[in-house]
Structure formats: C-alpha cells, structure tokens
Simulated scan of single mutants.
Amino acid sequence: MKQQDKEDPRVEESPSALNFEYNINRFGVLFLLAIIIAALAGLFSNGLLSSASKQNTPHTFDVNYDRFARLMSESEINITIQDLHADRYMVSIGNSLLDNYQLGDIRPEPDKMYSHGGTLYLMYNAADFPPPLSLWISITPRKPGNVTSTVKVNSEAEITYRQFVYP
C-alpha cells in the first residue's frame, strides 16, 4: 500500500470553537477565583463581610448579627443592652423573625416570655441582670430570601436590620 493511499490523520480544527474554549478557560478560572475569595471574605457565611452590628440612635443597645445565613443552618443574634437604666428590660423582636426563623436557645433565659400580635417579648428583671446585658438568640432560617427584622428594648428607638438567607 502506498503512502498516498492512506487517509490524512489530521483533524480539521474550528478556530471559533478553539477561541470559545480558550475564553471559557481564561474567564472560568477568574470566576472560580472570585467565588473562592468571596467565600473566604464571608459573603456566603461567617467572615469579614458577613458580620454586622447596628446601634440605636441614643446608643442604649446594639444588635450583632450575620448579614448572610444559610437555610436550615443555625446562627446567632447578640443583643447588648448598655446604658439603659430601668427596673426591667422588655426586649421585643418583630414578627418577621417568628415568621421566617425557628428560635433555638435564648441565653440568658428570660424571666418571662410571650408573643402577641406576631411579636416576641422577652422580659428581664434589671436587678438580676445589671447593664451591660448580653442576650444571645439562636435562630435557624426556614425560608430563603431577604429578611428584615426589628428589635426594640423598652421604649427606646428600634433597630431594623436585614439578613439574606441563601437556599
């Protein structure tokens, strides 16, 4: 058999397909690197971008929370009562918390706790808990999406904060 009778083993390459593959490889690596950096910074869970804190206008209490949470994954809210002098502390948490989250531990345990009109009320005797009182509430998101919650202590200005829950 002669050399000329054999089929040519070379494959016809499409320049557009090669350019497409090259661009996918080049931008795909950058995209994956951006996801890794965002995850390390806390965009998807705990980290620098995730932790947030808000204080009310008269600076009597503040709320520490995570901006981002994962569905059915427990996180905590910390409410710190600082310069509020009263006989008792009534912490009220808006109805979106009860609608969108499952409550877990509440530390320290309140003297009295009830809900009315969708709002959760936690009552503490100030003699038992002198300022600063640090209150920890464990929450587990039940629904994905953007959730806005409010926290109020006694008749002080309320704090409204927002948390995004990943599915």
Rank of each mutant, 00 (worst) to 15 (best):
I36C: 08
H59R: 13
I35K: 09
P58C: 04
K54P: 06
S50E: 04
K54M: 13
L49T: 09
S45P: 03
L49H: 05
F61W: 09
S50H: 12
R67K: 15
A41G: 13
K54Y: 10
N56Q: 12
F44T: 12
F68K: 11
Y65M: 07
I35V: 15
N64K: 07
F61V: 11
A39Y: 09
T60F: 02
A69M: 12
I36P: 00
P58W: 06
A38I: 06
S53V: 11
N46S: 14
G47P: 05
P58A: 12
N64S: 00
S53Y: 13
N46L: 09
N56F: 01
G47R: 03
S53L: 11
A69E: 00
H59W: 04
G42F: 00
A39D: 15
H59F: 06
S53N: 10
A39H: 13
I35P: 03
F61K: 03
A41F: 00
D66N: 13
F68D: 02
I37H: 05
P58N: 12
L40G: 14
L40V: 07
G47W: 00
L40A: 06
D66P: 06
L49D: 01
S51T: 15
G47H: 01
D66M: 04
L43N: 11
G47A: 01
Y65G: 01
T57H: 05
T60S: 05
Y65V: 03
D62I: 00
P58R: 07
I35M: 14
G42C: 13
N46H: 13
A39K: 15
K54I: 04
V63W: 13
V63Q: 05
S45E: 06
I35A: 14
L40S: 09
I36F: 10
A39R: 08
A38S: 12
R67W: 13
S53A: 14
L40F: 10
Q55S: 12
F44G: 03
S53M: 11
I37P: 06
P58K: 04
Q55P: 04
N56E: 15
G42T: 08
D66W: 00
H59E: 15
N64D: 04
L43Q: 14
V63C: 07
Q55Y: 03
P58Q: 02
I37R: 07
S51Q: 15
F61R: 06
I35H: 07
D62G: 05
S51P: 01
I37N: 01
V63T: 08
A52P: 11
S53E: 12
V63P: 10
S50G: 15
I37G: 06
Y65A: 04
I36A: 08
I35E: 09
L40T: 03
A41M: 14
L43W: 04
H59Q: 13
N64Y: 00
N46T: 12
N46M: 14
A41S: 14
L49G: 07
L43P: 00
S51M: 10
A38Q: 10
A41V: 09
S50M: 09
Q55E: 15
L49A: 09
P58T: 09
H59C: 02
V63S: 05
S45C: 02
L49Q: 04
Q55W: 05
F68V: 14
L43Y: 14
K54R: 15
H59T: 06
I36G: 03
K54A: 11
L49Y: 05
A69L: 02
G47C: 03
K54D: 13
I36M: 05
K54L: 11
A69S: 13
F61P: 04
K54V: 05
R67M: 12
A52K: 14
S51W: 01
